[in-house]
């Protein structure tokens, strides 16, 4: 019998600390598998800033950085400029990338920095206990929008994939979701394309991944996936926004 599905060696054997049903673990596996399949693990470095994935250095068995909140694209720029022949990815949440780190991600794309960003959009700040993020949907209740996000008070959610796709330095920008097997397959395919765009030196690449946060959404894992499909996907259309 052949093994057709097995844990990749690019993941360490440290068990994930993520909540049951969290999307991070799924995406960690995909990123690690892509690194293995592209045969680049020995020359890959990852940068994970503050957020639920801040402990990613325990999970990816490659050179890893932990970066200050929002600054992973700048840290990755520093690494990549020193080792242009190596591969570098950032793994960021929506609070990190779409809020405090907006300047860094926009300018990494603007410079056409040859890095790959894995952007987990779960419409909330996870690690700090469920606060409203720039990607929180209108009407969505969080610990800092207890009556539901009010767009007249704090605007409507930000669509990062579309925004970054308008920047010339972006070579590959896609948005996918984790709510069913078809979308899981598309997510991994997009991650692979993003890394391939980097390796081919085409410029900046990012995959925005709609991901569930059962704990802070106050939903069971299955319900969270359904809520994601019914509420997030309509507002955050899936697909490849840019491919050079």
């Amino acid at each position: 019998m052949a093994t057709i599905f097995k844990r990749t060696s690019v993941l360490t054997d440290v068990p994930f600390h993520y909540c049951p049903g969290c999307g991070h673990g799924i995406v960690h596996r995909m990123v690690a598998e892509v690194i293995e399949e592209l045969g680049i693990r020995e020359k890959t470095a990852g940068v994970a800033p503050v957020g639920c994935a801040v402990f990613a250095y325990n999970y990816f068995d490659v050179d890893m950085y932990e970066a200050a909140h929002g600054r992973a694209p700048a840290v990755a720029t520093g690494y990549k400029r020193v080792h242009p022949e190596n591969v570098c990815f950032t793994y960021q949440g929506d609070g990190d990338l779409a809020s405090i780190g907006t300047a860094e991600i926009v300018h990494a794309a603007h410079r056409g920095e040859k890095i790959t960003t894995i952007f987990i959009n779960n419409a909330i700040y996870g690690m700090t206990g469920g606060q409203m993020a720039p990607t929180t949907l209108v009407g969505q209740k969080t610990t800092t929008s207890p009556l539901g996000r009010d767009k007249d008070h704090c605007g409507e959610p930000i669509r990062m994939a579309e925004m970054l796709a308008t920047i010339n330095g972006s070579a590959f920008i896609a948005r996918t979701a984790l709510n069913n097997t078809a979308n899981l397959n598309k997510t991994k395919a997009a991650i692979k394309k993003a890394f391939e765009a980097q390796i081919a030196g085409k410029g900046f690449s990012m995959v925005e991944i709609l991901s569930p946060c059962p704990t802070n959404w106050g939903k069971a894992p299955g319900e969270a996936m359904d809520w994601l499909a019914e509420n997030m996907i309509p507002y955050y259309p899936l697909g490849i926004m840019k491919e050079v």
């Binding site: 057709i4 097995k6 799924i26």
Partner: peptide
């Protein structure tokens, strides 16, 4: 049917499939 959907969606990579 070894479609591996279970393993793909597992957030903790806790499923292995042989065929």
């Amino acid at each position: 049917i070894a479609c591996t959907s279970c393993a793909k969606t597992c957030p903790d990579v806790a499923i292995e499939i042989e065929k």
